[in-house]
Write a protein that binds this DNA or RNA. Structure first.
Length: 489
RNA sequence: CGGGGCGUAGCGCAGCCCGGUUAGCGCGUCUGCUUUGGGAGCAGAAGGCCGCAGGUUCGAAUCCUGCCGCCCCGACCA
């Protein structure tokens, strides 16, 4: 018997851990705060990578790779950046180990102390901009549109599988431009790609917005973000795209000669999404039975379970294989499970793992020309004809994708609550959760005060927000528009 | 860094208070047979530095001391 998954209403955090574990997505590693991403989890990441990478390349980006180690001195060059990351950097100080005198283990060899410490990258702006300096001389060298797929390390105090681990996988784009306008355009273009990816592939509705000064990336002039809402009413920053201005160009002295023969600092962007998206995916769609995956990102879209009887095992398996091949030929990701496990065991297993469609084929179906089709999103099942099965599956996959998005969006929309008074603000935050759409006077003081008092932060200033004069519910000062508050992961 | 929990078979746990046969149980694993439409049944089998190091004792999973590690909840953060 598999372990029981804790019900969401009883303990959401425990439920999340149970799903990750039972769906075999990841597990804790021997190292605190790090995880082993298991094949099921990594397959999800690979699918995310495939689609994102395609979109990056379609918009002119190329991939490259920069080192995991960054000279300590690089980190200190951009003041805000240092302040943002100094507290969570892993530092390499020695280059070799030696066996302890009492043979009880190993220790750093004092003779191998590095001349300059190396930082394990928490992000790569510094080493990339140091490199860009040598690549950029003229306006003809611009733009540079580079992305890299990599791991990064941030020494976090508190971790959660996928949502925050000390080492995580991500992509980080780093672009260099001749003008601020072009860099901002790039920043927004990437934000659109992220939003499209989240909504179209992950069926995870997101709100595009801009971070406040206190929430933005260390070293950025402006941070754009996509914010999603999890089932427990907490917000999740799902991706960020930064307009870095000339901060890194100045810190690393990256200048180019423009068309009027004058030296100018380069304009920069950086942007990233990480394995955190997997956490967001889980907390957007999954239920008390386990993982629920949208078809467009599911490593396996359809699983076929043959139900062999005593006398018809061969015939059932043969038909199941034929059906599997038909689906494969139609470009559907399908797995035939003809293992020794019993059907009931398989039903549960694939349900926990979130496979969108399960097909079960038994003796009855052979006779009737039918097959049992079960939808993971609705937990429904019905007998359908084997005729036109490919089309039926395609239609059903599309319906599942749409249903998951609609469901998540309806929930999310219902969880955006406009409030105008401080009493309402507190009431909604505690009783309902979700996003609170409220006026803000634009000061970091009020923002900090609200965070201090309620743990709610300004998730973003939504891009599609109408300007609307009003009053900040906390400070009573005038406000030019509403922003989204929430408690967040 | 504070608060809580845990460390015994691959996984989940009991045993510990109150020291004493050969350290148990469930799941999983292996073999065989019967099965197969929602986590199968029977029979047999394998599998343990009881987190580590000291100490008390005739005797320690159990008592004492120290250490290590992990998880969860909070303060910082993609």
């Amino acid at each position: 018997m598999a372990d029981v998954i804790t019900k969401r209403e009883n303990d959401y955090s425990q439920w999340y851990q149970d799903v990750v574990k039972n769906a075999k997505l990841a597990e804790h590693s021997p190292v605190r705060g790090c995880m082993v991403i298991r094949p099921n989890g990594f397959a999800l990441w690979e699918n995310m990578k495939t689609e994102l990478d395609r979109m990056f390349k379609e918009t002119g980006h190329v991939n490259a790779y920069f080192p995991i180690f960054i000279p300590e001195s690089f980190l200190s060059k951009e003041a805000d950046h240092v302040e943002g990351f100094a507290k969570e950097c892993a530092i390499v100080t020695h280059s070799r180990l030696r066996v302890k005198e009492d043979k009880s283990g190993v220790e750093p060899d004092p003779d191998s102390k590095l001349e300059e410490n190396l930082i394990v990258r928490p992000t790569s702006e510094t080493i990339i901009w140091d490199t860009y300096r040598s690549w950029i001389q003229s306006w003809r060298d611009l733009p540079i549109l580079i992305n890299q797929w990599a791991n990064v390390v941030r020494w976090e105090m508190r971790t959660r599988l996928f949502l925050r681990t000390m080492e995580f996988l991500w992509q980080e784009g780093h672009t260099a431009h001749a003008t601020a306008e072009e860099a901002i355009e790039e920043t927004e273009k990437i934000l659109d790609i992220y939003a499209h990816f989240a909504e179209y592939f992950m069926a995870m509705p997101v709100i595009k917005g801009i971070k406040t000064e206190s929430e933005k990336f260390a070293g950025a002039d402006k941070t754009y973000c996509i914010e999603a809402l999890m089932q427990d009413g907490k917000a999740l920053q799902a991706g960020t795209s930064h307009f870095l201005g000339q901060n890194f160009a100045k810190a690393f002295n990256v200048q180019f000669q423009n068309k009027s023969n004058a030296l100018e600092y380069v304009w920069a962007t950086s942007w990233g999404v990480s394995t955190r998206l997997i956490g967001g995916l889980i907390m957007t769609h999954s239920d008390d039975q386990g993982l629920v995956l949208p078809p467009r990102i599911a490593p396996t879209q359809v699983v076929v379970v043959p139900i062999a009887g005593k006398d018809n095992a061969a015939a059932v398996l043969e038909r199941a294989k034929a059906i599997t091949n038909d689906l494969k030929a139609a470009g559907i990701s399908v797995k035939l499970d003809d293992s020794d496990q019993r059907p009931g065991w398989k039903f549960n297993e694939y349900e926990v793992q979130g496979v969108p469609i399960r097909l079960a084929l038994g003796g009855r179906d052979l006779q009737n020309g039918t097959i049992e089709l079960a939808r993971r999103d609705l937990r429904s099942k019905e007998a359908v004809s084997q005729e036109n099965l490919v089309q039926t599956i395609k239609d059903t996959l599309a319906a599942i994708q749409q249903n998951l998005f609609d469901r998540a969006q309806a929930y999310r929309d219902n969880m955006i609550t406009p409030v105008d008074t401080w009493e309402e603000f507190l009431g909604v935050l505690d009783a309902k959760g979700g996003f609170i759409l409220a006026h803000w006077d634009g000061t970091a003081e009020t923002e900090a005060l609200i965070k201090e008092e309620t743990k709610a932060t300004i998730r973003c200033i939504p891009l599609d927000q109408q300007s609307e004069a009003g009053t900040d519910p906390r400070s009573g000062k005038p406000s030019a528009g509403r922003v989204l508050f929430a408690r967040a992961y």
